[in-house]
Amino acid sequence: MAQRIRVGIVFGGASSEHDVSCLTAGGVSRAIDADRFEVVGIGITPSGRWVQVPADELRALRKQGDELPRLDESRPTAVLLPGAGDGSARIATIDGDRLADVRPFDVAFTLLHGPFGEDGTIQGMFEMLGVKYVGSGVAASANGMDKDLMKRTLAASGLPGCRFVTVTARQWSQQREESLARIAKLGFPVFVKPARGGSSVGITKVDAVDELEQAVLFAQKFDPKLVVEEGVLGAREVEFAVLGGRGGAPRVSLPGEIVMRTDGAFYDFEAKYVSDDDAILMVPTAMDDELRERAADVAARTFEAMGAEGLARVDLFLAADGHVLVNEINTMPGFTHISMFPALWAASGMDYTALITDLIEQALERPVGLR
Rank of each mutant, 00 (worst) to 15 (best):
E270F: 00
E309K: 14
L180H: 12
L243D: 11
P333V: 03
D66P: 08
D278Y: 12
D35P: 05
D19C: 10
P342M: 12
L243M: 09
A55V: 08
S74T: 14
T357P: 03
A300W: 05
G43Y: 02
L112M: 01
P250W: 03
A139C: 13
A305I: 02
L149N: 05
L129T: 06
V53F: 03
L180P: 09
A279W: 07
F341E: 02
K272I: 08
R182V: 02
Q3V: 08
P255A: 12
D263E: 14
A279N: 09
P255N: 06
P54D: 14
N327P: 03
Q362I: 12
G120H: 07
D276M: 03
V298Y: 08
G247V: 04
G96N: 12
G307S: 06
A55H: 04
R90F: 14
D35R: 12
L212Q: 04
G369A: 09
D276W: 03
Q52W: 02
F341K: 01
L370N: 10
V283G: 04
D72V: 04
K205H: 00
T285A: 13
L254W: 05
G144E: 07
G334T: 07
G12W: 01
F269T: 10
A181C: 07
V39S: 09
D358T: 14
L61T: 00
I183C: 01
S339V: 09
E328G: 06
A319C: 11
G310R: 06
D223P: 05
M332W: 03
E178T: 15
A312P: 00
A249Q: 15
F105R: 07
K272L: 05
D315A: 05
V192A: 05
E118S: 04
L111N: 07
D297Q: 14
D146H: 01
D35N: 15
D19V: 07
R236G: 07
R246W: 05
G307H: 06
D146I: 00
V28A: 11
A219F: 02
A2M: 15
V201Y: 02
D72H: 10
A100C: 10
D210N: 15
L217H: 13
D207T: 13
I203H: 00
A181H: 12
S141E: 01
E17F: 06
S141D: 00
L233F: 05
G135S: 08
D315L: 07
E361W: 07
P284Q: 06
E361C: 05
P250N: 08
D66E: 14
T45A: 02
K185H: 14
I183R: 00
V368F: 08
S200K: 09
A92Q: 03
V10G: 01
A279D: 07
A25Y: 11
F126V: 07
A265G: 06
A363M: 04
R103P: 02
A169H: 13
D207E: 15
A279V: 13
L291R: 15
E365T: 10
D289M: 13
L316M: 08
A295G: 03
I122H: 06
V242A: 01
L71V: 02
A286D: 15
L212R: 05
D97L: 11
W50L: 12
Q220N: 01
P54W: 11
G83R: 02
R196N: 15
P69R: 00
E365Q: 13
A300Y: 08
V53C: 05
A346Y: 11
V20R: 04
Q3M: 12
E365K: 13
R90D: 08
E177Y: 03
G13T: 03
D97G: 09
